[in-house]
Design a protein around this nucleic acid. Structure first.
Lengths: 335, 335
DNA sequence: CTGAAAGCGCTTACAG
DNA sequence: CTGAAAGCGCTTACAG
């Protein structure tokens, strides 16, 4: 049933030249300049009439380039990952690259599996939203000579290229806004994680409080138990002897769970408690009050990652560290 | 800089056998049974110590199989697409397939571009959320002998396999609920589109109204102008001489835009106007009232699409049409 | 101006 | 029980 595909040989036969000649003209090789206009045109015409589609696999085997980028995100179903994937897809396509993706679920073994699969498929380079404790597997990638760019997350004191935002300042500024608005007891709800970008967000919170002489109140939630942990954390902080009057969520997932709870409990925002969060969410638009949040420049993030990766593919030069600025979107929730 | 990769030849050399032998044992070919246990073990050991990673490209060129599925969605950044993509990714991985994706933006030319790219890369099959008027390009795929399964959308009187939901019944039931709840003037906000699954939703609305002897009121919105069109439609219907007391949105994007507008205008839901919609959205959780909606079984949809595609890849048998049942999630918004 | 030929890294009938 | 060899569909130095 599978139709025989048209190949170089067929065009060569039809025109009466060698496959070499056909290859030269179809790829616009420098060689092609020396091929007579007649032959070249005939080749091109024949390719068109036969509807020739080059076999990228054969091409790749010979040239050792697949024009493919491997992308590993946390979960493509998560809007943050999806948006970044889309931007990367577009930027890659513009440069003639296709992307193969996989979701790591923040799991080290799954990530390693994906890396193996992608390397077996000879991707020209990888863009990875790295999972916790994955430094070793990342070193293996670069040691194999495969270009690598980290996105969103990174590891300090590590040579891998990365494109991230300034998580510290982003958080610092948002928390400072809560302070400026007169809040004295500002809680933090954060992921229990060693991922450096999250650690940096926490540090932004602590530093902002310290600079104002305020006491921190924190709840670290487990990835396995987000909803319950967030609710328990909020409940404890709200019912403490000295209850919080503001809360900062370090991710949008935490914020969504927190906001759902606060709405259920009919806690007044921002009268009773002011709210700010890192990252956006569509949902913010629909909350009764607009939510103050730290916005990451996703477009820039994705495009720079692709640009840097392709640069590394072409030059085998590495190790650029980009930190992009975040933007503080001030809504009504911060008071 | 690029490290030389370990290949079959290296293992063969090390063990002192031919590459054929190495290939047989590493692939557990039937042939491998006849190879002495000692040799086989030595091959496996050596492969492990050298950390041999097969070159999937070379393998594919020879076997004419890439173990790759091409996936075309409307926009991977859109949560519906992202969730489906994730389910497909997992189902595919379980069967040893990797997925390459692309976003068509509902655009025929982009879709054709993606199809070409994916076919050049010799994907073993395609799963496509088809765009309007794409029948011709789909016929070209099947005529080239490439297995194809449509997902979410389909075309009537067409031989392509598809996995979709029963859009007519889903809508019919939801609108009927509004009617049961005493609503008499039920409006429809729908996309201006010939896509059959959307046409079917519209038909569900009209039939439900007709069965109850009610008059329809409709607004068809352009993809290029969703927000404005939705708002104008609602405004017109709310301010008509005989204003609507309920509204049905045929997609979640339309619903989100509509809900945003209704909230801004402080229209009471469901007192003044009852609301129901096709498809889910995270946002529904955060709306002051829970939103009645028609839920698609995404998990099933994605898994069946992959299963059917792989079936077609292995048997070259085609043309199965799946219609899955939707579920009506009854919230407070429908009154 | 063009072609013969090697080779990319595998698999697999075939021979022994 | 194992290997020599052809071949998947291209590209590209090299020769003429």
């Amino acid at each position: 049933l599978k139709q025989k595909k048209v190949q170089l040989k067929d065009i060569a036969l039809e025109v009466g030249v060698s496959t070499a000649t056909v290859s030269y003209v179809l790829n616009n090789q420098p060689m092609a300049d020396r091929i007579s206009k007649e032959v070249a045109n005939k080749v091109r015409e024949t390719a068109k009439t036969l509807n020739y589609q080059p076999n990228q696999i054969a091409k790749s085997l010979k040239t050792q380039k697949t024009n493919t980028i491997g992308l590993i995100v946390a979960d493509i179903a998560n809007p943050f990952s999806g948006q970044v994937a889309r931007i990367i897809e577009d930027a890659a396509k513009q440069q003639g690259y296709t992307v193969i993706f996989g979701s790591s679920d923040e799991n080290l073994d799954k990530a390693q599996d994906l890396i193996n699969t992608l390397l077996n498929r000879q991707v020209d380079g990888l863009i990875i939203a790295a999972v916790e404790k994955s430094e070793t597997q990342l070193y293996a990638i670069t040691q194999a000579g495969v270009p690598l760019v980290l996105i969103d997350r990174y590891f300090p004191d590590t040579p891998f290229s990365h494109v991230c935002v300034d998580n510290f300042s982003g958080t610092y500024d948002a928390v400072q806004l809560l302070i400026k608005n007169g809040r004295k007891r500002i809680g933090l709800i954060a992921n229990q994680s060693d991922l450096y970008h999250l650690v940096e967000r926490n540090r932004g919170y602590f530093d902002a409080l310290k600079a104002a002489g305020l006491e921190p109140q924190t709840k670290y939630v487990s990835l396995k138990n987000i909803r319950k942990d967030v609710e328990e954390g909020l409940e404890a902080m709200l019912n403490a002897d000295n209850p919080i009057d503001a809360i900062f969520f370090t991710t949008n997932v935490l914020a969504l769970n927190g906001l759902r709870y606060l709405r259920k409990k009919e806690v007044d925002i921002p009268q009773k408690i002011a709210v700010a969060a890192f990252d956006e969410a569509d949902v913010y638009d629909f909350f009764p009050v607009s939510i103050t949040h730290v916005r990451q420049p996703l477009e820039n993030l994705g495009q720079k990652a692709v640009a840097q990766l392709i640069h590394q593919i072409k030059t085998t030069e590495a190790g650029k560290h980009f930190f992009l600025e975040t933007e503080l979107i001030i809504g009504q929730s911060s008071g």
